[in-house]
Nucleic acid binder design. Structure first.
Length: 825
RNA sequence: GCCGAUGUGGCGGAAUUGGCAGACGCACCGCACUCAAAAUGCGGCGGAUAACUUCCAUGCCGGUUCGACUCCGGCCAUCGGCACCA
């Protein structure tokens, strides 16, 4: 047989075979253990990039490996198809977002198919199709029904370039996550999902996810930002209103020397009204409005503020303290007001020094100054309370408890927990998204669309230009409707939903994607969910992964799901870099997957991307590395085709009797490779080392030259093993070679090989002899010797004798099968 | 500033439980095949040294240990996340 490795023909052939025979179609099968393997579905930008290739190559190895190990594997793919790029492209190229999106999906799907991934395409989910977004809207209605979707007017993040509002999670360092424009604050009435109602569970249940990277859990914990303390009220001198503040340090309440409100605080104007400071206060508010959030919240920003002219009364000591407003207090955390304790809070300290406000020490430790004037910085450490009336002498922890108890007893305040997490702002003033199923009626107010009337169809004939309002608000036959409750003329909500809503439940839909009356069947999700292995980029650590967890908990609560967490194990893959930087058009360092697949084939592309580094680490793209993997597959091709005819006539016996040295060495390599590859894939996803073990097997086969007839079963076993082990990585070439060497059934339907422990036994092992930890000799000995025997052999070695002759042997350490260490003096 | 990760040849990386540092691949060098080149095959490849089976070497300094890339303490650098969160 003398054919060269024609990857083009081979890959097309096997992709067709798999497809024609529905190889990857799965059904619920109670007789097999299930395995739900999921890669994050892509946004259909039109082209596959290397990050996708890496993501899906990793996923496919896991899927094929699990299938060969007897699992019933669900491995679906779909499209996160709503979103801004489609709309922007529509505006730029005068093409409808739907057409643009569907064309992209078609293109990416065919690119994906050339990768040869084992997807069950019958389960394909496309979030912009009415049969899907019908149920995204259904989710909204359920949340609304359960008081978890609400509308409110507040200061929201506005991206002037995207012309829409953004959720908190979508603002990165004050800029829009998508387009990097500086985000502005706007007062708008918007729809929110009450994620804060789930803050504690989202936090607690992270502990139930041992299969998640610590890094991601930490990021979510920080994002949720739980802090314990108390909230209490202060009277305002000469007014009926009270001022409410949150603090984590109630033990320092006797150290309060002033109060601070956020400039946006609703009380500010009232407090300053008629005071000498009124003009100053108004000017400061104006200035803050003009300052971007980014500039204002930068930690190195200079603290500034003004006195309002009003005073509050400290409820614990009756003291009158001035109320200021300052840039360093934010309206959207806590109550938008703080008690300031300059002696024990660095921010308050900086501010007090600048404006000559007294600094009073109330926590004293042996190594902290006793007087405010002596302090160089605030003291936030442990100590005992001083200058605190009846509470003097208590330590920080005890003081906090006692102060809170006192406040609760006297109705001043209570213990509270505050979260940094905000509710999820889900309305978007854009066209290409799922319409929010709500109607506004003059008489009935906010009325949800009836379930039977879903989906609220996105109209097609629309002018897309964003004017800061949803394009739907200009489409009369969309917004004009009748009230679902009273039937009178009413107006539809014209905002659409954040696309993260769509991606918060798609993994449930994959379980039964054909359902038309319900979002998913209970039976199907009970069989498949939760996802056993989820794979995707770490950039979703907070956004998507927290929203999906929120949805899952909600669906559990309304008895739609039996699991409370959607993803049991999470693998966050690293980025694909070129010349040390993320591939991007602007840097001109993009390598196109299409080119690579055309030049070397999908098997090579997949192999390289898995070989170049472990999946969680960033991967440096190397054209020469790709070349090396291509060479390796060519070597495998030559090796196997050279043997194919011979071994197709050979049977592998149930047990191997007498083998000569060469054959035994080859069997040893075959079985160590099985063991290594299995452990590397199953145990720790180290595909790079799994591939090197496969290469070692191939090298061993290559240098095996002793072709006696009676040893051919050993060769056949080695070749079969090589193909089986390599098949999850580079499936097409393995299918072809598997067939060429006389096998009838597809390689990917074979059971995963199991190593034979007997083949791993060696008659001889090399042990290292050290003197005081330095290698001084190597001796080949029979396997299985006792410690004492090894010690004697080591001491008997000429070299060791010579090196130890005038030394005193203090002790010897023996590690069986490995080493002897002789400690001398 | 806080939290987390990472740091090993010319390069990507390996060493899984404290036991031979550098597996596997790339690059490079030599040889074979060839008129020649490519492809392929064989061999070499951390540094020092004339040489060795000698010494040095896993970011830096120190410690524990018979033995440390691995454990402990202190630093440095790079990357990522959070950042006036009261």
């Amino acid at each position: 047989m003398d054919r060269r490795y024609d990857f083009r023909t081979i890959e097309a052939k096997w992709q067709k075979t798999w497809e024609d025979n529905n190889f990857f179609k799965v059904y619920e099968d109670k007789n097999k253990p299930k395995y739900y393997n999921l890669e994050m579905f892509p946004y259909p930008s039109g082209h596959l990039h290397m990050g996708h290739v890496r993501n899906y190559a990793i996923g496919d190895v896991v899927a094929r490996f699990k299938t060969m190990n007897g699992y019933n594997v669900l491995h679906p793919m779909g499209w996160d198809a709503f979103g801004l790029p489609a709309e922007n492209a529509a505006i730029r190229n005068a093409v409808h977002p739907a057409r643009w999106t569907y064309a992209n999906i078609e293109n990416m799907k065919s690119q994906l198919k050339t990768m040869g991934i084992s997807y069950d395409w019958d389960r394909e989910v496309t979030t912009c199709k009415p049969d899907y977004y019908k149920f995204t809207q259904w989710m909204f209605l359920k949340l609304f029904e359960n008081n978890l979707a609400y509308k409110k007017r507040s200061a929201v993040n506005w991206c002037p370039s995207c012309q829409t509002v953004l959720a908190n999670e979508q603002v990165v360092e004050g800029c829009c996550e998508r387009c990097d424009s500086m985000v502005e604050k706007k007062q708008l009435e918007q729809w929110f999902f009450k994620t804060t109602a789930y803050a504690q569970r989202l936090l607690d249940d992270l502990d139930k996810l041992p299969g998640w990277p610590e890094k991601v859990k930490t990021m979510q914990r920080n994002w949720i930002g739980r802090s314990e303390g108390c909230q209490f009220s202060l009277a305002i001198e000469g007014r009926a209103e009270t001022l409410s503040v949150f603090t984590t340090r109630p033990d320092t309440v006797f150290g309060v020397t002033y109060m601070v409100l956020a400039p946006e605080h609703p009380l500010v104007e009232k407090l300053a009204a008629g005071k000498a400071q009124e003009a100053q206060v108004k000017a400061f508010i104006r200035k803050m409005k003009a300052t971007s959030d980014m500039a204002r919240t930068a930690s190195d920003a200079e603290k500034e503020g003004v006195f309002t002219g009003a005073y509050a009364i400290n409820p614990l000591n009756g003291e009158k303290v001035p109320i200021w407003i300052a840039n360093y207090v934010l309206m959207d955390y806590g109550t938008g007001a703080i008690m300031a304790v300059p002696a024990h809070d660095q921010r308050d300290f900086d501010f007090a020094r600048k404006y000559n406000i007294p600094i009073r020490v109330v926590i004293k430790s042996p190594d902290s100054p006793a007087r405010g004037e002596e302090m160089a910085e605030a003291y936030a450490g442990e100590g005992v309370m001083v200058n605190s009336g009846d509470f003097n002498g208590l330590d920080v922890a005890e003081g906090q408890k006692r102060i809170i108890a006192y406040m609760e007893k006297h109705g001043i305040g209570q213990r509270t927990v505050n979260y940094r997490l905000r509710d999820w702002l889900i309305s978007r003033q854009r066209y290409w998204g799922a319409p929010i199923p709500i109607v506004y009626c003059q008489d009935c107010g906010i009325v949800p669309v009836a379930e039977k009337d879903l989906p609220v169809m996105l109209p097609e004939d629309v002018e897309f230009k964003p004017y800061g309002e949803s394009p739907l608000s200009y489409v009369e036959n969309f917004y004009k409707t009748s009230c679902p409750r009273c039937g009178k003329e009413a107006r539809r909500e014209t905002d659409t939903m954040d696309t993260f809503v769509c991606s918060s439940w798609y993994f449930d839909r994959y379980c039964s994607p054909q359902e038309s009356e319900i979002p998913f069947s209970r039976e199907a999700v009970d069989y498949w969910m939760p996802v056993d292995q989820y794979i995707g980029g770490v950039e979703h650590a907070i956004l998507h992964l927290m929203y999906a967890r929120f949805f899952t908990k909600f669906l559990y609560d309304i008895n739609m799901l039996s699991c409370e967490e959607p993803f049991t194990n999470l693998l966050t893959q690293g980025m694909v870099l070129k010349d040390g930087a993320k591939m991007s058009k602007s840097k001109g360092n993009v390598v196109s997957p299409e080119d690579i697949i055309n030049t070397y084939g999908a098997d090579t592309a997949r192999l390289f991307i898995l070989f170049a580094s472990p999946p969680e680490r960033d991967l440096e793209w190397s054209d020469q590395g790709v070349e090396g993997c291509y060479r390796f597959l060519n070597r495998v091709w030559r090796l196997v085709t050279a043997y194919a005819d011979t071994i197709s006539q050979v049977n592998i016996p149930a047990s191997f009797a007498e083998l000569d040295d060469e054959a035994r060495k080859l069997r040893f390599r075959t079985h160590t490779s099985i063991k290594k590859v299995t452990e590397d894939i199953a145990g720790r996803f180290n595909f790079n080392t799994a591939i090197s073990a496969i290469m070692e097997l191939s090298n061993a086969l290559g240098s095996y030259s002793d072709n006696e007839e009676q040893d051919l079963p050993v060769v056949k076993e080695a070749i079969n093993t090589l193909l089986l082990l390599l098949s999850p990585f580079s499936p097409h070439i393995c299918e072809e070679l598997w067939q060429l060497s006389g096998n009838k059934e597809s390689v990917c339907l074979q059971p995963w090989p199991v190593h034979d422990p007997a083949a791993l036994l060696q008659d001889e092992v090399e042990i290292v002899v050290q003197i005081s930890g330095k290698v001084r000799d190597r001796i080949t000995v029979p396997a299985g010797l006792t410690e004492e025997q090894l010690r004697q052999i080591a001491l008997a070695s000429d070299k060791i004798k010579q090196l130890t002759q005038d030394k005193k042997i203090v002790k010897t350490i023996v590690v069986p099968e490995k080493l002897v260490n002789i400690v001398v003096k």
